[in-house]
Simulated scan of single mutants.
Amino acid sequence: MRLLIINPNISQSVTELIEAEARRTAAAGTEITMATAAAGVAYIETRFEALLGAHAAACIAGERAGSYDALIVAAFGDPGLAALKEALPVPVVGMTEAALMSACLLGQRFSIVAISARITAWYRETVAANGLLDRLASIRHLDRPLRDAGSVQEDHAARLLELCEAAVREDGADVIILAGAPLAGLARSVAERLPVPVVDGVSSAVRHAETLVALGVRKAREGSFAPPPEKPRAGLPAGIERLFQRD
């Protein structure tokens, strides 16, 4: 089983965090290939930045078409996820949808702990798009400047734990989701210190992707997730052009 995991931002340090957690989680025999956006932003906080991340993910997905059995979009908020599900013939899983599905299996209401205030509007819209807004207890976030996306866990460990505890005791969360690739792997280190389950988006996405491949699900040929129809096109990057081609 071959998984392609795409970090849609340009931070190699974040890709390394994602890869470490993915390899800790993956089943024996799963081959993991990482990819980092060549252009974009250091970490995604806004709708517009998510648009850039979606473009980067689509380019990479097309450039490497045929080399993976499932693809993971490794940014919380899942930039480009639905579009890639349309275009690709293999399962595509996003960190957010995977974390949300895991959380719903573990409890009724969940809280999301995020790395910035600006990011919360996009996260709330992503939860709504997944039809789960009524199960969202809260979104809590860091309120301090970030030195580097790859050092968030190191720089803000105590505050992140405080946010998790407040989500449980003040917001009534049954499950905590640690949101964003910069927090990949943190759930392992805080799980014993919190009174409710803690969900990691990367590990959830890896396991859900493995399950879909193992189930042998087929690509939709009709409906809203059928491949985009043929029509004239021009000026597209090679990777995106590849996604339109039918083998």
Rank of each mutant, 00 (worst) to 15 (best):
G77K: 05
G62P: 13
Y68E: 10
T46R: 10
A50V: 03
H55P: 12
G62E: 07
Y43R: 14
L51N: 12
H55N: 15
I44T: 09
A50D: 07
Y68Q: 07
A50Q: 10
G80D: 01
Y43F: 14
Y68D: 08
A39Y: 08
P79C: 00
A57C: 06
H55D: 07
A39F: 07
I60S: 07
A70Q: 12
I44R: 07
L71I: 06
I60A: 08
T46H: 12
G40C: 07
R64A: 05
V41K: 11
E45K: 13
V73M: 01
A83L: 05
A65P: 15
I44Q: 07
A39C: 11
H55S: 12
R47H: 13
I72Y: 09
L51P: 11
G53A: 05
P79N: 01
L71K: 06
V73W: 00
G77L: 02
R64E: 03
G62I: 02
A58V: 05
G77Y: 05
G62Q: 05
L81D: 01
F48I: 14
S67V: 14
R64D: 03
A65C: 13
L51C: 13
F48D: 13
E63G: 06
A61L: 02
F48R: 13
V73L: 00
I60H: 09
G80P: 02
R47S: 13
A50N: 06
I72L: 07
A50C: 10
D78E: 04
D78R: 03
A39V: 08
V73H: 02
A57F: 01
A57L: 01
G77N: 04
A83I: 06
V41D: 10
A58P: 10
A58C: 13
V41E: 09
L52R: 05
V73Y: 02
C59R: 10
A56Q: 08
G53T: 01
I44N: 06
A50Y: 02
S67W: 11
A56N: 09
R47K: 15
A65R: 14
R47L: 08
Y43T: 14
C59H: 10
A58R: 08
S67E: 15
H55A: 10
R47M: 12
A75L: 04
E63D: 14
